[in-house]
Amino acid sequence: MNEADAILAWLDGRRDFALAVVTKTWSSAPRPAGAMMAVAADGQVIGSLSGGCVESAVHELALEVLSTGRAASAHYGTSDAEAFAVGLACGGQIDVLVTPVLEPAAVSRLRIYLEAVSGSRAAALALELPGATEEDGAELDGPSRLLALDAEGRAHGDFAHERLTEHISTDARGMIADGATGILEYDETGRRLGSGTRVFVATSTPPPRLLIFGAIDYAAALAELGRFLGYRVTVCDARQVFTTAERFPAAHEVVVSWPHRYFAAEAAAGRIDASTVVAVLTHDLKFDVPVLLEVVRSAAGYVGALGSRRTHTQRTEALLESGASEEEIARIHGPIGLDLGARSPEATALSILAEVLAEKSQGTGASLSATTGAIHR
C-alpha cells in the first residue's frame, strides 16, 4: 500500500491525525515539496518527510498540534552541532506545515486530493500557512484551511475571502498544468500583488509515458524498470503472437498495432508531450523507420533506438532516404542508453533509463565522486 492509499485508509476509518507536509526545500533535501507524513494520536506514522533525518522532531510537533488543534510551521536544517540531532545530516533544509485533520470538511478535501494521487489523476491541494514570512514555529488560530481541486478542475472548499478563494483556485489550476508545487502569496482580500496571506499548493499530475516499440525480452525488462520509476508503460508491436499481456506483466497496456500507426494516433489525440519517453527496440528497419519518422517530428522528449552502431548507420541512411532531416535524426539516441557495459536485458534497461534521467536533469552521467557542485539540480 502506498502513502496516499494508507492515509486514505485512515480517513475511511475516521481516524484523527495530524498531516505534515514539506512546503519548501533547499540544497540536498531528500524529499521534495509536497511530501507528506501522517501522525495519529497514538503515535502511529504513515510516510516520511526526509528519509529519517527529522521525522522524530516532526512526530513530536504533530502530537502537539493534535493536542492544541492549531496548525504550526517548522524549519529544519543542518548545523555542526545538530546535524545528527534535529536536522538534516545530508546538508539540506526543509520547511514543514503540520495541521490537524479532524473536521469533516478537511477530511473531504484531503480525500479528493489523495484519491487523485492514488489514481494518477490531476489535482491540487491548497493549505493555509501560518505567518506572513518564513517564521519558524508560527501557528494559526486553528487548523489550516484546505482547498482541493479535483480531476475536473472544480474547487472544493474556501478561504476567508471570496476573491482569495477564486485566485487560489485559478493559480492552482495553472500549477497543475505546469506540474508545479510551491507557495503563493496574497493579501488578506486575495490580491496577487499583496502580501501577508501565504498558501502552499501541492499538485498531482498524471505520470509520464514510456512507449516501448518491439515485443522482445529487452522490452519486458524495460517495462518493469519503467513502471518502478513511475512511468505509465505501453508495449506495442504488430506481431500478435509476441505481443501479449502475459509476456509483459509490468506494462499498463499492451497494444497490437503497427508502431507508427499507434504513435501517430496517440500524437493526434494530444497524448504525446515533452515528458514522453519512446524506446524503439525492434532493430528492424521495416518497423523502425516508419515509427521513428513519426516520433522525431512529435513533442516526445526522449527517443532512443536499440541496435549496434552498424544497425544505427543503416537506420540513419534509411531515414534520410525517407525524408527525415539531419536535425530530426539528431534527436535519436542510437545506440540507445549510457555506456554501462550492459549485456543482459535488465542491465540494458538500466542503461536506457539512466540516459533518460540524465537527459531530463541535464546530468553528465559521470560518477558523482568525480564531479563537484550541487548533486540535485
Rank of each mutant, 00 (worst) to 15 (best):
I212T: 10
D217C: 12
L292I: 09
A215H: 09
E327Y: 14
E355K: 07
I216S: 04
E134Y: 12
G337V: 12
R209C: 09
Y186I: 03
G13H: 05
A62C: 05
E253T: 13
A324Q: 09
D16C: 01
A160M: 04
R191L: 02
L49I: 05
I212Y: 04
A89E: 00
N2K: 13
A20I: 08
L229M: 08
G52P: 00
R31Q: 02
H283D: 00
F159Y: 15
L193M: 08
V291P: 08
F213G: 04
P30T: 02
E166P: 03
A29G: 04
R315N: 01
E64Q: 14
A20C: 06
V255K: 10
T311S: 11
F228N: 02
H156F: 15
G92F: 03
W10I: 00
G52Y: 06
A238H: 11
D217M: 11
E346D: 10
R271Y: 11
H161Y: 09
S325K: 08
G270D: 08
H333M: 05
A85W: 01
W258F: 14
V295Q: 10
R271L: 14
D5I: 10
A126Y: 13
R163E: 01
L306H: 13
G190P: 01
A122T: 02
V255H: 10
F159V: 13
D217R: 15
A106K: 03
V58A: 04
A160I: 06
V96Y: 13
D95I: 08
T244N: 04
P259N: 08
M37D: 00
Q240K: 10
V117W: 02
A9Q: 10
M1F: 11
A160N: 09
T78S: 04
E185V: 03
E326Q: 10
R297Q: 07
D158M: 12
I375H: 06
A29W: 01
L66V: 00
L293W: 09
T311Q: 01
I216W: 11
W26N: 00
R310S: 08
A89G: 05
N2W: 08
T189Q: 01
R227T: 02
T372R: 11
G91S: 03
E346G: 13
R15D: 00
I212C: 13
E55N: 05
A374T: 06
S195C: 10
G43P: 06
